[in-house]
């Protein structure tokens, strides 16, 4: 058994050379220094995303999804946080090595972010109009009048009626769903190539969630923006993702297309995650939770982090970190069960 396919698999997504990836994250590691020790929040995450594609990063709370997105944006509070290893290549430039000023030019202009809670993401003391135009005024030499025109256009795009009047209003005069539309409009003002949506629908009720997700699809069709969707809601993922990366304890444990992840999940964690979603056809039966809790990221296990909760754990799992095994061009899984080198 030779460790043969690692290199190949890593390059596999690149094999689709008909399109350059917008963003390539390679072996990203982020740590946070605290009084209790160093938290290894993200431990070597690699993925990429193409133009016009939606990649969903799913996983439970504390698995490092949001830290990954903050790291891409260069928004890791430092100290205590630090990107200790890896690259974030955006259009051929490594964002982790950029100076603060350079990063600021990309942030909000080429890469935008949508936050989880629209009730708190807007500044309560500033008019919506000001909050819409300030980003574009910062990044381009556009005139205020043109910026306002553009803002009205964007508000129309995200489905806000009477945009001209609404520009002069304050956040508290909008409902939750409307505020999230505003947040999306703000993110789109500079026509970014990449949109990172960090749990964009978690704070909204279900009917509004559906509307916002449809809006994402519509915007992507119109603008070709690549979307990284960070969520723990598999329903949302099923609706709009093209590809899915499943994260656990600071690592990506399985990646694949939506179909591959939902219909042929190979990693026990992915399977457990899917089993724990309520299903209409299993009405009356209790949900199947994943037993146990995620590992302590102050001192993560040397082997597979899921070992302690895994129903199929083997001796090797505890000792050696599994490498990625390619099951198809798009489907990869980090699990010894699928690695032929593992001793059963």
């Amino acid at each position: 058994m030779k460790i043969a396919n690692d290199e190949k698999i890593k390059q596999n997504p690149k094999a689709k050379t008909y399109e350059q990836p917008v963003l390539q994250v390679d072996n990203l590691e982020v740590t946070f220094k605290t009084y209790g020790g160093t938290v290894q929040a993200v431990r070597g995450v690699s993925f990429n995303i193409m133009k016009g594609e939606t990649l969903a990063i799913v996983g439970e709370s504390g698995c490092g999804k949001s830290v990954t997105s903050s790291a891409i944006m260069g928004l890791i509070p430092s100290p205590p946080g630090k990107i200790t290893n890896g690259q974030v290549m955006f259009n051929g430039r490594d964002l982790t090595g950029l100076a603060k000023n350079e990063l600021r030019k990309i942030r909000g202009a080429d890469i935008s972010m949508i936050f989880q809670d629209p009730m708190t993401a807007l500044n309560p003391t500033l008019k919506i109009g000001d909050q819409l135009i300030e980003g574009i005024m910062q990044h381009t030499s556009i005139s205020t009048a043109d910026a306002k025109k553009k803002a009205i256009e964007m508000m129309k795009l995200v489905g806000i009626p009477n945009p001209t009047e609404r520009m002069k209003q304050y956040p508290h005069q909008f409902s939750g769903g409307m505020r999230q539309r505003i947040v999306i409009a703000i993110a789109l003002m500079c026509e970014p190539e990449l949109l990172i949506a960090d749990e964009p629908t978690t704070a909204l009720d279900v009917t509004i969630q559906a509307q916002i997700l449809e809006l994402f699809e519509e915007i992507q069709q119109k603008t070709g923006v690549a979307i990284i969707l960070i969520t723990h809601d598999l329903g949302v993922v099923a609706k709009i993702a093209n590809r899915i990366a499943v994260m656990y304890a600071g690592k990506i444990v399985e990646t694949g297309t939506k179909r591959e992840i939902f219909y042929e999940p190979k990693h026990p964690y992915t399977q457990g995650l899917l089993n724990s979603v309520p299903r209409l056809d299993l009405k009356g039966k209790p949900l199947e939770p994943i037993e146990g809790t995620p590992p302590d990221l102050f001192a993560p296990p040397v082997g597979c982090p899921f070992t302690a909760r895994c129903p199929h754990a083997m001796t090797v799992c505890e000792k050696i970190m599994p490498q990625q095994t390619a099951l198809s061009q798009s489907h990869g899984v980090n699990c010894w069960l699928l690695d032929e080198r593992a001793q059963r």
């Binding site: 944006m73 928004l75 909000g108 935008s112 500044n123 910062q138």
Partner: peptide, 21 residues
Amino acid sequence: QDYIKMAKAKGLTPFRIIIKH
């Protein structure tokens, strides 16, 4: 607050974030 994080994500200068937001 989140709106400060959002202002940072917009790429605003630290000065503007402090004074305006």
